[in-house]
Design a protein around this nucleic acid. Structure first.
Lengths: 261, 261
DNA sequence: TAGTGGTCTAGACCACTCC
DNA sequence: GAGTGGTCTAGACCACTAC
């Protein structure tokens, strides 16, 4: 007795630092304001720069900070709510809600996409999709409030859309839009979505104005017709700036709050 | 001429390492297999341990590795598909799809939740919710395939459900279930969902068997009645092991693939 | 050119798990 | 007690931005 139970759970320094900084952000900083640079912050808190950076990384992951090489660290605005599931069961491109077609090409699908294309619809046939069948790919970008928030790659098997081979537009946005138009001629039977965490590949990162490896929310959508899976879309959203919304109730939208952690 | 254009884009070491390791995982390792320890891997690749760890962290973020202190690093199984939006417009607890009530209490809602409760339904009234009104909280856990995948905190304003004050079950699962039962008596008008990246708070982390700060997918759901927002649920899913599925097409489920990054 | 964040090193010690 | 991953340090240099 006499020895008061102290420090039984020694909190890591970076975790405590994160808490302190988080409160400081709430109270003493405005959105867009630049923080002191990392070397000074580290000195001010009496820790190594690496430790300070661990705290900043967490805060950036939670969308509270924005760091840019050569520029500095700024206080991030609240995450943008991006509607993902509001317009239901529609082909990509049908409602122009911020998406912009960039380019189209014809290649072989990566293995993961082949699997998604191969699995049939519940009702339909499930005509297997082989890895050596060509697919048309359409690249799109989604811009919200002037900021790029998502990069999408859409995979359409050449044989799932009849008119696809007749497209002769040169590479570029025009060709991409032509592919989307052909897709819309089909009858959409249903769709399927999943969300998971990933890290941006080099090409996506460039499109999203981030460094490779940046955390992204990967939204995978499968589009079904009676004949099976007619297309697969893999959209990567910036995890730091986006909150994906699935508006089941139609007219309501969460607009401003931040609840995460 | 003669000087071949090399290394114009000097890839960071950890990024290259990640690629190499990723391929090795695909080819030379089975799910569940343990990797050599970090010190040996670092030596083998001729980098500092910190650099090696940067690559491992990325792979863990992508759900390819699982690291446990005192144990080692193992190859993770493919992410589990967890249905989030399949049963539509139903109160929490109505379909026992892996959720288990843990406890219930009565407190004040955190600021972020107050905002969510305050915003009214499109159709309904929008009777403002004040920060000093008490809310009932229900804690639930979701288990899939023997693994804890999500921790949920449900907030129910005391005055949004009449029978709530009559509950006299002692703290614990029984009380939690009693609160959910009362909630089910109301007529659900609609709901609203959003997904964003967060980091696990200490309590959630313990429930998910992870360290604090671990990346999680935060699913925020608002439940509407004619009177306004009747409840708000904040569920945190392990981002490393989960893929959230929103099955619009009813009977179809993505089951096995991994597409992220 | 100066200042920023991004990468990397070579150590050290700690917390945890398992034997 | 041995071995693992987690935290932390005090440096160094690089890539990028802006002036």
């Amino acid at each position: 007795m006499g020895t008061t139970q102290l420090e039984t759970v020694p909190e890591p320094k970076y975790w405590h630092l994160k808490t302190v900084l988080s409160e400081a952000l709430d109270q003493d900083f405005a959105v867009g304001e630049v923080l002191p640079n990392e070397r000074e912050l580290a000195a001010r808190f009496g820790v190594a720069r690496a430790t300070l950076r661990q705290a900043l990384e967490q805060l950036e992951l939670e969308g509270r900070l924005q760091r840019r090489r050569g520029v500095g660290t700024t206080v991030a605005p609240p995450r943008v709510g991006v509607a993902v599931g509001s317009t239901r069961h529609s082909w990509p491109g049908e409602s122009a809600d911020g998406w912009e077609a960039v380019d189209a090409a014809e290649t072989l699908a990566p293995a993961a996409v082949v699997k998604l294309l191969g699995a049939g619809n519940g009702a339909g046939s499930g005509t297997g999709f082989a890895a050596d069948q060509p697919v048309h790919t359409v690249r799109r970008t989604r811009v919200t409030q002037g900021q790029p928030v998502a990069a999408e790659l859409l995979y359409v098997p050449a044989d799932s859309v009849p008119g696809l081979s007749a497209i002769d537009a040169p590479a570029g946005p025009a060709r991409a839009r032509a592919v989307l138009r052909e897709l819309e001629r089909l009858v959409l039977d249903g769709q399927d979505r999943s969300v998971e965490l990933g890290s941006a590949r080099a090409d996506d990162a460039k499109q999203l104005d981030r460094l490779p490896g940046a955390p992204v929310l990967v939204v995978t959508t499968r589009y079904f017709t009676a004949a099976g899976t007619a297309a697969v879309s893999v959209a990567t959203y910036r995890a730091d700036t986006c909150r994906l919304t699935f508006g089941d109730s139609g007219d309501v939208e969460i607009t401003e709050t931040r609840v995460a952690s």
